[in-house]
């Protein structure tokens, strides 16, 4: 194809997106569109998969059967969300194994929030309430993104995510209304998860490198700073309702903007964690790679069994 033909195709492509048409796997697309989507969708899938690890820590120690079944169901959903997203990503011509390799070799990133430890049961509450809350704010606009398979996967993810946040808030509520020690656990979890949750919505608009192009492709509908503000404005009253204090002395209602002003975020910490120096980066990757490698014989055995069954069937047919 000549350069002019490609320019022409690109123009038609941008116009289709502008008209809110969806792009489907076999449609022509600019190489950059494909690459950007593979990057974002696989990061998203990796985050779901790694996100199971901090919560897995508490399954056997959940305080009641009710909490245990809910936590198990939530973690199973996360595995499911990872699988929806991987399969959507594969429609762009990348294989599942390439995607796993990118995660396991450290080439691909996942959400930095999962590199923080879960040290008490209250962390299960804080993760559901704050981390899933922030994720929902990020994900709802993606239900309208331009790439069809991604949008369809996101619709399913968002439908399921709301239970995650509600079960988390319920845990926090129960602890906050419990004994002084239980309330302290809840407050301590909020103290530790609040700032990482704000960081989770991404670097400030001034520092965000992908925003403009992503807005055009509807991979992003609102800027990181807008999403963060939305998260803060909706979460602060929820904390007040259960008598917990947001760990930010500069947090103040701004009557003029009808939203909260908040203190400075420690972006050095964010970049340290992204670069691999968070409290649990190594532990998470070790668990993930370990699960993959130790499961290899199971995958091979299943494949060998399937082939044997197939052969037997063919012999009988003769």
């Amino acid at each position: 194809m000549s350069e002019e033909q490609i320019k022409n195709l690109e123009k038609q492509f941008e116009e289709r997106i502008l008209r809110d048409e969806k792009i489907e796997p076999k449609d022509w697309m600019p190489e950059k569109y494909r690459q950007t989507h593979i990057r974002q969708m696989s990061q998203h899938a990796h985050s779901e998969v790694v996100g199971m690890l901090p919560e897995g820590n508490w399954i056997t120690r959940a305080p009641s059967l009710r909490r245990k079944v809910a936590l198990l169901a939530k973690i199973q959903d996360e595995a499911g969300h990872g699988l929806y997203l991987y399969s959507a990503c594969e429609t762009l011509g990348v294989s599942r194994n390439e995607l796993y390799d990118q995660l396991h070799s450290g080439k691909a990133k996942y959400s930095s929030i999962f590199n923080y430890p879960t040290v008490t049961w209250a962390d299960m509450g804080a993760i559901g309430w704050l981390v899933d809350g922030a994720a929902i704010i990020n994900q709802v606009p993606l239900c309208n993104t331009s790439y069809g398979p991604y949008a369809r996967a996101m619709i399913r993810v968002c439908k399921e995510e709301s239970f995650h946040q509600r079960q988390g808030y319920e845990i926090m509520m129960k602890l906050a209304n419990g004994t002084p020690e239980q309330k302290e656990l809840a407050q301590d979890a909020l103290n530790r998860w609040w700032w990482p949750s704000l960081m989770m919505l991404g670097p400030t608009d001034a520092e965000s490198v992908h925003t403009e192009q992503s807005m055009k492709w509807k991979l992003k509908r609102k800027s990181n700073d807008d999403l963060r503000q939305q998260f803060i404005d909706q979460t602060v009253p929820q904390a007040e309702l259960i008598g917990l204090t947001i760990p930010d002395p500069d947090l103040k209602w701004n009557e003029e903007n009808k939203s909260y002003d908040f203190g400075d975020i420690n972006w050095d910490e964010f970049w340290q964690v992204v670069k691999g120096h968070g409290p649990c980066n190594k532990e998470r990757m070790k668990a993930r790679v370990g699960a993959w490698e130790e499961g290899e014989w199971v995958r091979d055995a299943a494949m060998a069994y399937a082939e044997k069954k197939q052969e037997r069937k063919q012999k009988q047919a003769v």
Partner: peptide, 17 residues
Amino acid sequence: GSLHAADAEMALENARD
């Protein structure tokens, strides 16, 4: 959507989950 499985039977079981 789609998923990976060793054979059709496993694909059905995985699809259910």
